[in-house]
């Protein structure tokens, strides 16, 4: 996993609640056996019109937002399907962080396991940053994981919370598997206890 410490970037505004993982990556892209290349299908229905051409009204297609690595959206972001492909699509597209007023549980977990930082802020704070991203698309904000802050160009600071274990994993780029593999002797003892009915 790619470590995450800090990102400074423009912000793509996606003004909607309940952005589900079917919207992030439609099922037709899930027939892959790889994690790579899913960026092409990211937000497919939002980015393309029915004839396959770019939808100019979609912020993702607007030149001013090109190269942005932060996405901002409303509540319950990433709801629905557990497909980790949604996170792989976002990271392959170039996103490093998503700011939202709340996240769906499975999406939140999947993000943390792929170095995509989910930043939960209060609805009013999300609205301020959303308006900034819409009215001044060139504005860059900074997300600092160590300090747990989002900083606007004017220097306004928004703190966010994150579980300390998850934070250290992200900072170091560590996944759970290494830790779990170290636990195998403990797991074996647990299995023996259960088998013995203790």
């Amino acid at each position: 996993m790619k470590p995450f410490d800090r990102v400074v970037s423009k912000v793509v505004p996606l003004r909607a609640d309940n952005v589900d993982t079917d919207q992030i990556i439609p099922a037709k892209y899930l027939t892959t056996v790889s994690k790579k290349g899913l960026g092409k299908g990211c937000f497919h229905a939002l980015r393309y019109q029915e004839d396959g051409t770019d939808d100019p009204s979609c912020p993702l297609n607007q030149p001013v937002y090109q190269g942005a690595s932060i996405l901002i959206s409303g509540s319950n972001f990433g709801s629905g399907s557990s497909r980790e492909h949604a996170v792989w699509a976002l990271t392959d597209y170039g996103f490093r962080a998503v700011i939202a007023s709340s996240f769906a549980d499975i999406f939140y977990n999947n993000s943390l396991k792929n170095g995509l930082l989910p930043v939960k802020l209060a609805p009013g704070q999300v609205e301020e940053l959303m308006q900034l991203a819409q009215s001044k698309p060139e504005s860059k904000i900074q997300i600092d994981l160590e300090k747990q802050t989002v900083v606007s160009p004017e220097g306004r600071e928004y703190g966010f919370s994150i579980d300390s274990f998850r934070k250290s994993c992200l900072l170091q780029g560590l996944d759970d598997l290494g830790y779990l593999l170290q636990m195998i002797p403990v797991v074996e003892k647990y299995e023996e206890r259960v088998a013995a009915g203790i």
């Binding site: 977990n109 396991k113 598997l177 797991v187």
Partner: peptide, 16 residues
């Protein structure tokens, strides 16, 4: 669970 967690369960039968 997501696919990362599928790999954790396959390898260790556990999740964090």
């Amino acid at each position: 669970v997501g696919t990362s967690e599928v790999s954790h369960v396959l390898a260790t039968q556990c999740l964090m």
